Simulated scan of single mutants.
Amino acid sequence: MQKKLYEETLKTKDIYKGSIIDVELQDVLLPNGRESKREIVNHPGAVAVICITEEDKMVLVKQYRKALKKAIAEIPAGKLEKGEKPEICAQRELEEETGIKAASLKLLDSFYTSPGFANELVYIFEAEGLRSGEKHTDEDEFVERVDVSLEEAREMIKTGEIHDAKTIYAVQVWELQKLRSKL
């Protein structure tokens, strides 16, 4: 790692320990020799699943997001449990939220959601070989399954009904797959 693009952690103070995130305050030494502070959100990581039905519809779940003060439509997703493999989590979340099981899941990509202050890494899977399962959300989770066409998904992005990066990414992946299949 180049010294000019590195910050040495001098001291760490735990600010908050929660069930989803932990927050810490770090004193850091900057490349120019000065000191600064960094507020860091530690997250165990998450998964998200692109699920396209035989009817050529993307499976979304609508859920109220308190931080946004509104409901948005998202691809099925969830937080990794400690030590859980992403593929196992993706299979679990897909069935819990939608009632769909996948014969297999293909890892497409992973990305950091907000690298300026958080270490959350989201793994994006594509579900293959869909079959019926059993929907059983967590007791504090209220979701509504919505299956949409590509055109409907594009419109939902325009109106803000889809308004999160992982779902917009999923719609773009789907659109690219459709374009490639026409070539």
Rank of each mutant, 00 (worst) to 15 (best):
A90K: 07
K70G: 13
A118T: 12
L80G: 07
S181C: 00
R92W: 10
L94G: 13
D109K: 10
K66A: 08
S36Q: 08
L5K: 11
K66R: 05
A90E: 07
M156Y: 11
P115H: 03
K79N: 07
I124D: 00
N119D: 15
N32R: 05
L29I: 11
K158S: 01
S181V: 04
I20W: 05
Y64S: 05
L179A: 13
G78L: 06
G33S: 14
Q91V: 00
E151T: 07
M156E: 01
D147R: 08
A67F: 07
E8L: 12
K37T: 05
C89T: 04
N32Q: 07
F111T: 00
Y123E: 07
E39R: 14
L60I: 01
S181I: 02
K135Q: 15
L30V: 06
K57L: 04
L94P: 09
E144L: 02
T12N: 10
V146G: 02
T159V: 05
H136L: 13
M156H: 06
E141M: 09
K85P: 00
I100W: 11
L60N: 03
L80D: 04
S149Y: 10
E24Y: 09
V61H: 07
K85V: 04
D138Q: 13
I124R: 06
L30R: 15
W174L: 08
D27L: 15
L150G: 06
E7K: 12
G83R: 13
F125I: 09
V148R: 10
A127M: 10
A67E: 08
L25P: 00
I72V: 15
E87I: 13
I40C: 03
V47N: 10
V59Y: 06
A67G: 09
L150I: 08
L10G: 13
L183P: 00
V41A: 10
A71Q: 08
G129H: 10
C51H: 01
E74H: 05
K101G: 01
R38L: 02
L130N: 01
R65Q: 13
K178I: 03
E8I: 13
K82W: 14
V28S: 06
F125M: 14
T9M: 02
L108E: 12
V23Q: 04
I72R: 12
K57G: 00
S114R: 10
